[in-house]
């Protein structure tokens, strides 16, 4: 089973909201100081999904990441978790795109990788939260796509996937090759082992520039954008919180109930 997992380096979504700052002059997010970036958590779910298949029936996992200023400690995490290879699309030409131009570059890179049975993506990246790149890659490569997977079984060249819905899940069977996006309901990703971390340290990622993949430059990165970002801003939090106090926690609780009743909230 040949598998490709697309992963993205993002600003740590668990960073305290107070550390989140925007540079109004160019509509960009200022990386919070002292808080290193991480792999988008849903992408770690996607790596875990691939690793479970590799554990069960063997196979090869290639992780692909697109961006610039990629910290090796961050983007090597798939390797330390158990992936076999890492390809970085690290070129100015690839960045500042929208979902479509990003999906295009990833799809062309996957085409160059050549052999794949399953391509995995996280359900959405924890920065722009769009959740489009997986569908985009599938569309460009002409593959079926199942989104929001929480369980995956492979039998007889087909994948049986539990897809998260609003009130439960649906079970979908898909022929391979296919693209699958993985949701957090899949379960916690594994921690890298010491052995894995050592192996990842020794392994050098393969870096591809725009010239290394067969692509039309007009479709890449900022040039390939179909959407225009007019404004990035932080929503204003309104109102004050009235803190209800008491001599003891129990008294504060009673005072809260009385207050809510008085204000006709309950």
């Amino acid at each position: 089973m040949n598998m490709v997992v697309c992963v993205k380096q993002v600003i740590d979504p668990e960073a305290p909201p107070a550390s989140f700052k925007i540079n109004q002059s160019d509509n960009t997010v200022v990386p919070p100081s002292g808080i290193p970036p991480v792999l988008s958590p849903f992408d770690e779910n996607a790596i875990e999904a691939a690793l479970q298949i590799k554990d069960a029936q063997g196979g090869k996992i290639t992780a692909v990441s697109l961006g610039i200023n990629l910290l090796r400690d961050v983007v090597k995490k798939p390797l330390s978790m158990g992936a076999d290879d890492l390809i970085l699309l690290e070129d100015e030409a690839f960045v500042n795109g929208d979902s479509l131009s990003t999906a295009y570059a990833l799809a062309m890179a996957i085409k160059k990788i050549g052999e794949y049975d399953i391509i995995f993506c996280g359900r959405q990246a924890a920065d722009w939260d769009a959740g489009q790149v997986g569908s985009g890659i599938a569309e460009i490569l002409g593959l079926p796509c199942v989104t929001l997977a929480k369980k995956i079984d492979i039998t007889n060249g087909k994948a049986r996937i539990e897809r998260v819905t609003a009130d439960g899940y649906e079970v979908i069977e898909v022929s391979l090759p296919a693209l699958i996006t993985v949701s957090n309901e899949f379960g916690e990703p594994r921690y890298p082992t010491i052995k894995g971390i050592m192996a990842a340290k020794r392994k050098q990622p393969i870096v591809w520039k725009a010239a290394d993949i067969e692509s039309e430059s007009s479709k890449l990165g900022a040039t390939g954008r179909r959407t225009k970002l007019l404004k990035l801003f932080q929503p204003v939090r309104e109102g004050e919180c009235e803190i209800i106090e008491g001599e003891s926690p129990e008294e504060a609780a009673v005072n809260l109930a009385l207050k809510l009743r008085e204000a006709k909230v309950i």
């Binding site: 803190i243 926690p249 609780a253």
Partner: peptide
């Protein structure tokens, strides 16, 4: 951060607050 978005709040251990709050709400209703 939750207090920044809230209208009313109590600071403390929920394990102590919730039972007293629940029984008072029940009594009031």
């Amino acid at each position: 951060n939750i207090f920044k978005a809230s209208h009313y709040g109590v600071v403390g251990d929920w394990k102590k607050i919730l039972p007293a709050f629940t029984s008072k709400v029940k009594e009031l209703l």
